[in-house]
Computed example of a mutant assay.
Amino acid sequence: MLKKGVFAGLLLLAGSVMAETAQEQAVKKLVEPRLGDGVKVDSVVKTPYSGLFEVRVGGDIIYTDEKAQFLFVGNVVDAKSGTNYTRNRVEELNKIKFSDLPLDSALKMVKGDGKRVIAVFEDPNCGYCKRFRKTLASLDNVTVYTFMYNILSEDSVAKSKNIWCSSDRNKAWDEWMLSGKMPTATAPANCVTPHDKVYALGRKLNVNGTPAVFFTDGTRIPGAVDAKTLEEKFASIGQAPKR
């Protein structure tokens, strides 16, 4: 069982912006070459539990010992409270400033009062995104900004261009994602899309799969979550629906 001070120590760890200590730098030097060619370790921080060191690679976390002899892949969970320290830490590291998102490069859908706001990265050829789009259709009082994040194929780029360049982008996107109906008119050659900008943004934010949902508090949920999960998340950040 983890000690009570572990959680407080983790909070301190999550908020720390201090430079790596000599020991942490040594661990980083040892562990990086053991993770494979081309893998770059962003930071190493000594944790308050069991002498482990947190190794951050992009938006992911693994753990190692002080000699980097062992790698621990998985979640550190408080056996008494059920608190998932690793998940909380990953959420903290991956937080964004929602107001910095270039929303002019996204589709905008408003339902009801639109007060509950999310941004979603989706690929037009992503089956999970199509399933998630059906979930979004069941929600009310939401504003959804959709970034067409074309990472699956060149065909994704072509489909997104036809949708972006159509007379009603939101209608075209929903018709494709929900009904498999693509706009009949081909996008004109001179139509400029935000593909490059959105692609660069997704890479910067470590969006490695679609769908990826961002909330106004800066946190994210990867994957095609259900309506119940979305409602619980909205409630947790003070965006519960009106009764």
Rank of each mutant, 00 (worst) to 15 (best):
K4I: 15
A8W: 08
L10E: 12
L11H: 01
L12G: 11
L13G: 00
A14C: 05
A14Y: 02
G15E: 06
E20R: 00
T21P: 12
T21M: 04
Q25K: 10
V31Y: 04
P33Q: 11
L35M: 14
L35E: 13
L35R: 10
G36V: 13
G36N: 14
D37H: 12
V39L: 07
S43G: 09
K46F: 01
S50I: 08
S50C: 08
G51S: 11
V55M: 08
V55D: 00
R56Q: 07
R56G: 00
E66K: 15
A68S: 14
A68E: 01
F72N: 14
F72A: 14
N75G: 12
V76R: 06
V77Y: 05
K80F: 11
S81P: 10
T83L: 09
N84A: 06
N84G: 10
Y85D: 03
T86Y: 00
T86D: 05
R87S: 07
N88E: 04
R89L: 10
V90D: 00
V90R: 01
L93H: 01
L93D: 01
N94E: 00
K97Y: 09
F98H: 12
S99M: 11
D100R: 00
D100Q: 05
P102M: 02
D104A: 09
S105H: 11
A106M: 12
L107A: 15
M109G: 06
V110I: 01
D113P: 10
G114S: 03
G114H: 02
G114F: 07
R116Y: 07
D123R: 03
P124Y: 06
K130S: 15
F132C: 12
R133N: 13
T135W: 03
T135E: 00
T135N: 09
L136N: 11
A137G: 09
D140F: 07
N141Q: 12
V142S: 02
V144S: 05
V144M: 08
N150L: 01
I151M: 07
L152D: 04
E154R: 05
E154Q: 10
A158N: 14
K159V: 08
K159W: 06
S160W: 02
K161P: 04
S167K: 15
S167N: 10
R169N: 03
K171V: 11
W173V: 12
W173A: 01
W176M: 02
M182R: 14
A187I: 10
P188V: 13
A189Y: 15
T193N: 15
H195L: 12
H195Y: 15
D196C: 08
K197Q: 15
V198M: 07
Y199C: 09
Y199T: 12
N206Q: 08
V207I: 03
V207M: 02
G209M: 07
T210S: 05
V213K: 01
V213F: 13
F214N: 04
R220N: 13
A224W: 00
D226E: 13
K228A: 15
E231I: 13
E232P: 06
F234C: 15
A235M: 03
S236D: 08
S236L: 09
I237S: 13
Q239Y: 12
Q239R: 14
A240L: 03
P241C: 15
